[in-house]
Design a protein around this nucleic acid. Structure first.
Length: 815
DNA sequence: GACTCCCGCCAAAGC
DNA sequence: GCTTTGGCGGGAGTC
């Protein structure tokens, strides 16, 4: 009955002939049903509104065809046939087909006839859409709309709408366009030229919004506003808006059936809003080989400028507004191809370092859209850390510690894990591996900088003892975030690894070592050792961050080799430059980090393994308790009692290090004085005393195995001992067999792992202790490094942390 | 009452 | 001139 009502009798008769026996039987049954049932009963037997929804209909439609059809199969779609079989009018089928067409899952062959492609082209299409979405700056548009929504709450006059209209009107991307794939161009001139293909275009743009959004959630309201804004913003009235919303529901139903999106609700200040979340495949915008075909109804830009395709060119040459219906003229093909080839040449430079470093699409190809949050996270952390540092300074300014704040070369900075995780912006992965924090230290002899890497607990310790330090955490949270984000696509993280990641991702667990899960320490390989580029970039980042901190703290002092800002405008200017450079460098560094992480993954290096940048390290002690020196309870809580924790960092170009090594080489770290970190005898005396229990439980029992070669090299390198002179390991640790063989590191790590299973001595029972106290207990001992260098003013110059030596010395440390 | 979206009118485009 | 296609908005069903 429906068919006969919807179609002429002749067509029905022809179709009936083509229909399968099953369909005929269904129809006959229907007719019988209608004849035998009364009107009400028949109505009741009709499917409900829900059962007739477009989404369900689309499900039925999709069920008819395989996701990945083979070429041998008959993949033609006859709209009449489908409409009849699905018992809907053709109008509904058009809605479905249009959306599928926008994703290139179907293509129109002829009148009433389509070809089914399934999901073969889906990834390419999504890549293309993402690229176009990025080019169209949809992210900015979304932000603009959201911002305007917020402003609109306080501004109800009509000026805003005018401003909105102007903004969208000035948008160079305001034309409607359709993204095509090579070989998937619309064959029919009608489709190419018709202006009223907005459902397809809307569908594509809707998808683009998801692909460029972070998180990939788009509210209907925002989507409708953007689509209206691009269409006819002068008609930004309510009816237009409602109509767009209706269409978006149509599209969303189909996309939901394709499991590309999922309906959610976002709760904002003004209430609950319907929205959709992208649940489709992660899209890597690596489309250097994907040729985009963008049709356009207008020609806003000259052809010589970034016209993406011959399609676009032909369309732009013959704008299809009104009744001008042009197909691609053969004479244009040659010209268009030339343009296209040129464009391809330009775009086919994926290895261009400029592209990679400039966070372009190529850059994004390695890291999906969430990578875009990296700068924001970094900024967030820097700001938070800067604030924390200021607070810490304020706190400590009146404390018993006498710290020379007048000339700090390195300013202490709290570690990232101190940042409240809840303050992370939505969609931003919280910092996880926050165990190591580098500090740039200028080398006194070689003009090369050192980086001190501090464990979070050490950060607290250093904060306490030397508040003039500023810890410079690596963008580890960013890296981790990237890793976790990309794990599905890039790293193929196993479930177990994922669990580990979750455990370490939890920022609350990174606050103290006590809360930290036992982390195995194993030095399995130094295959990730040499990453010169990453090292340089890392140093650059550190320098930038130091610069930033220098500005932030407004101390009027700058880190060595950094020119201090002379006035506020210059400072602002430098800040701007810094932010920009920092972002670029951070992203580049993060890539290297992720690459190394991937490599380590491939080489089966445990995720929690200790990594430090290549070069050698002079680590800090990791066992500290802050019961003295007037620490507040809060600070005590922050000072962790890490005993068996190793330091993990997915930093590119890293050396696995175990906790014992850190302890061992910590000694020279404390005595090397490339910094002018002043510590008075008073404060040293006030430093916690290392108890035997600590040594027993962690240093000794956990098989600390000081790497004397590292120690010696370190001392030689910094000029504390002459070349050729070897200094034995710390006598406190001497009962542990010392081996300079690299494998020994692994062995000690294994020991450590075993030890970790034993219950640790309770914090309280250990009493105030810190490994750093080792140095005070054995000052000037024959087997230790020289005593603290005393300054003329009676203070002692110490540095605390893991000293990072440039990589060129690496082979020495491996001795 | 707001949200959701089915339904079908009707005009443009195709043949 | 008939058919196909699809924009559009009323209004019914659902929450």
């Amino acid at each position: 009955m429906l068919i006969s009502a919807a179609s002429p009798e002749i067509r029905s008769r022809e179709q009936r002939r083509e229909l399968s026996n099953d369909v005929s039987e269904v129809l006959q049954a229907k007719h019988c049903l209608q004849e035998h049932l009364s009107g009400d009963e028949y109505e009741k037997s009709q499917p409900s509104r829900k059962e007739k929804s477009l989404g369900l209909l689309c499900h039925k439609f999709l069920a008819r065809y395989p996701d990945y059809p083979s070429t041998e199969e008959n993949n033609y779609i006859c709209l009449d046939e489908v409409a009849e079989e699905l018992n809907v009018e053709r109008r509904r089928i058009y809605d479905i087909v249009n959306v599928l067409e926008s994703l290139h899952m179907v293509s129109r062959l002829a009148k009433n006839r389509y070809a089914w492609h399934g999901r073969h082209n889906l990834s390419k299409t999504l890549q293309a859409l993402k690229k176009v979405g990025e080019e169209n700056k949809y992210t900015q548009q979304i932000q603009m709309i959201k911002k305007r929504e917020y402003e609109h709450e306080f501004d109800f006059d009509g000026e805003r709408n005018e401003e909105t209209a102007r903004t969208f009107g000035s948008n160079e991307h305001s034309e409607m366009s359709f993204v095509e794939l090579p070989g998937m161009e619309f064959r029919a001139a009608s489709v190419n030229s018709r202006k009223d293909k907005s459902l397809r275009v809307m569908s594509q743009k809707f998808v683009m919004l998801f692909l460029v959004s972070t998180p990939q959630i788009v509210s209907l309201e925002v989507a409708a506003k953007i689509l209206i804004g691009e269409d006819q913003l002068e008609d930004l009235d309510k009816s237009k808006f409602k109509t767009k919303i209706r269409r978006l529901y149509d599209i969303a139903n189909v996309l939901s059936s394709l499991e590309l999106i999922k309906k959610v609700h976002v709760t904002e200040e003004r209430g609950r809003k319907p929205a959709f979340k992208w649940t489709g495949p992660e899209v890597l915008p690596n489309i250097q080989d994907t040729k985009l075909e963008t049709t356009s109804t207008t020609c806003p830009t000259p052809i010589s400028e970034s016209i993406p395709s011959k399609e676009q060119c032909s369309k732009n040459l013959f704008p299809s507004r009104g009744k001008q219906n042009f197909t691609r003229h053969p004479s244009l093909i040659k010209l268009v191809k030339t343009i296209e080839n040129d464009r391809r040449k330009i775009q086919s430079a994926p290895t261009s370092p400029v592209k990679i470093c400039a966070s372009t699409d190529q850059n994004l190809s390695a890291f999906p859209s969430k990578m875009a949050q990296v700068p924001a996270v970094a900024k967030h952390q820097l700001e938070g850390q800067s604030k924390k540092a200021k607070e810490m300074k304020m706190k400590l300014s009146g404390s018993a510690l006498e710290c020379n704040l007048s000339s700090p070369e390195v300013v202490l900075k709290p570690e990232p894990s101190q940042q409240p995780a809840l303050t992370q912006p939505p969609g931003v992965c919280p910092p996880s591996h926050s165990s190591v924090s580098p500090v740039i230290l200028p080398h006194p002899h070689s003009a090369l900088s050192y980086a001190i890497y501090l464990h979070p607990s050490q950060a607290h310790t250093v904060t306490t003892y030397s508040p003039s330090f500023m810890l410079q955490p690596l963008p580890r949270a960013n890296v981790t975030g990237i890793k976790s984000i990309n794990s599905k696509v890039v790293n193929k993280t196993t479930a177990e690894e994922g669990d580990n990641q979750i455990a370490t991702d939890d920022p609350t667990k990174s606050l103290t070592a006590k809360e930290r899960p036992t982390i195995k320490s194993e030095t399995s390989s130094q295959r990730c050792l040499k990453r010169p580029q990453a090292l340089q970039e890392s140093n650059l980042i550190k320098r930038y961050r130091s610069d930033k901190e220098s500005l932030d703290t407004s101390l009027g002092e700058s880190i060595k080799n950094e020119r201090p800002p002379s006035n506020s405008s210059q400072m602002n200017h430098e800040m701007d430059n810094f932010q920009e450079e920092k972002q670029n460098k951070t992203e580049t560094l993060d890539q290297n980090m992720t690459r190394c992480y991937d490599q380590c993954k491939r080489e089966d290096i445990p995720e929690d393994e200790t990594f430090f940048p290549s070069g050698y390290l002079i680590p800090l002690a990791q066992c500290t308790h802050g019961n003295k020196a007037g620490f507040s309870d809060e600070e005590k809580a922050g000072i962790c009692s890490l005993q068996h924790t190793t330091y993990s960092s997915p930093v590119a170009g890293v050396i696995p290090m175990t906790a014992p090594e850190l302890k061992a080489v910590n000694i020279p770290a404390f005595h090397i004085t490339p910094l002018n970190i002043m510590l008075s005898p008073t404060s040293i005396a006030a430093a916690p005393v290392l108890s035997n229990s600590c040594l027993t439980s962690s240093n000794t029992a956990s098989a600390p195995n000081p790497s004397s070669s590292v120690l010696n090299f370190t001392l030689q390198h910094v000029g504390l001992i002459p070349a050729g002179v070897r200094v034995p390991a710390n006598p406190v640790l001497q009962h542990v067999p010392v081996s300079s063989q690299p494998e020994n590191v692994s062995r000690s790590s294994e020991n450590l792992n075993l030890q970790e299973e034993k219950p640790c001595v309770p914090k309280e029972a250990q009493g105030p202790q810190t490994v750093t106290e080792n140095f005070f207990r054995t000052p000037g001992g024959p087997n230790t490094v020289p005593s603290l260098a005393a300054n003329s003013d009676g203070t002692n110059r110490i540095s605390q942390g893991t000293l990072y030596i440039p990589q060129r010395k690496l082979e020495v440390s491996e001795d």
